[in-house]
């Protein structure tokens, strides 16, 4: 851990904010991707059943 001196809160805050924001964005995108993929898979299955 480097010595951040008097600015420790600012530096740690900046890295913390960045990592939190990116983590939130990634989580949101991945969850949405998963939900949409599941929904589409369900629809495709339903269509195939009604076709056959």
């Amino acid at each position: 851990m480097p010595d951040l001196g008097p600015y420790a809160t600012a530096v740690l805050g900046a890295y913390g904010v960045t990592i939190a924001a990116i983590a939130g964005l990634v989580a949101w995108l991945v969850l949405r991707a998963r939900r949409v993929r599941r929904e589409l898979a369900g629809l495709e299955r339903g269509r195939r059943r009604s076709d056959g």
């Binding site: 990116i22 964005l25 990634v26 995108l29 991945v30 949405r32 991707a33 949409v36 993929r37 929904e39 589409l40 629809l43 495709e44 339903g46 269509r47 009604s50």
Partner: peptide, 27 residues
């Protein structure tokens, strides 16, 4: 690179969502 990866994920999701919507409308 992070942007590129997230853009690919997001675009793939949008394409799937569009297809899902089209299927729903067709049904």
């Amino acid at each position: 690179l992070l942007f590129l990866a997230l853009l690919l994920v997001g675009t793939r999701t949008e394409i799937r969502a569009r297809r899902a919507r089209a299927l729903q409308l067709a049904m």
